[in-house]
Nucleic acid binder design. Structure first.
Length: 221
DNA sequence: GCGACAG
DNA sequence: ATCTTGTCGC
């Protein structure tokens, strides 16, 4: 897919925070998504003691969830991991991996938060704005907010609240397994996001998209 | 000032 | 994220 690479990528934490404040108003919280025939999953891993960032993307048919394409991209790590600034560390490599895709995904599930972020611009939202595509944030642990533990049955969920605002959902994707933190990335409402995450999940805690992308990103070869 | 803190 | 085998529970 075509990528319009961002210019003046932040090099410091303060520059990054300033850019998030500038971009947060561009996030679309409502459904602006068409028919979904292809769902993509993206994830990032590290090699060589973290000096090399490895991004992986997988594209699956929807709703069958059959793998149709995958891509990998490696590049030097240039930004440290700082809670709240994850996108500045992982997006550069992700864009290169996405650029190699032959298939144009209709929806992308990202590992990490969407608007469930201190400044409402987690990696899923940031990526969504850059490539102007519907994205959903799928996190395995909490960044910000409070919540009640959802019921044990798969499909149960509770709102994730931060500063009197619902920023996402704590969703049980499988019976009795730890819930995932789902949030709007870009152009996908929370109810729709929850629905797609459940429909992309089969027998594991993580949706197939995220799970397969994770295997490519971490496991070597 | 003291904790919390996606991957 | 990453270093890492077996083990407990459904």
């Amino acid at each position: 897919m075509y990528i319009n690479y961002p210019k003046n990528w932040p090099q410091t934490a303060s520059e990054a925070v300033a850019l998030q404040q500038e971009l947060r108003s561009q996030v679309v919280l409502t459904d602006q998504i068409g028919p979904v025939n292809h769902v993509a999953g993206v994830d990032v891993g590290f090699e060589e003691d973290g000096t090399v960032t490895r991004a992986a993307v997988v594209v699956l048919t929807f709703p069958e969830l059959q793998l149709v394409e995958s891509s990998l991209a490696r590049k030097p790590t240039t930004f440290p991991y700082i809670p709240g600034l994850l996108s500045f560390r992982e997006i550069p490599a992700l864009l290169e991996a996405l650029e190699q895709l032959q298939t144009n995904p209709d929806l992308i599930l990202v590992d990490g938060m969407g608007i469930a972020h201190p400044r409402r611009l987690g990696i899923a939202s940031h990526l969504g704005i850059l490539i102007d595509k519907p994205t959903i944030g799928v996190g395995k642990s909490l960044l910000v907010g409070k919540y009640e533990m959802p019921a044990m049955e798969k499909g149960s969920w509770e709102p994730l609240i931060h500063k009197q605002e619902t920023i996402g959902a704590v969703l049980r994707t499988r019976d009795k397994i730890n819930p995932l933190f789902i949030s709007t990335g870009h152009k996908v409402s929370l109810p729709t996001a929850i629905d797609y995450v459940m429909r992309c999940t089969t027998k594991y805690r993580l949706p197939e998209t995220t799970r397969l992308a994770h295997n490519l990103a971490s496991r070597k070869k």
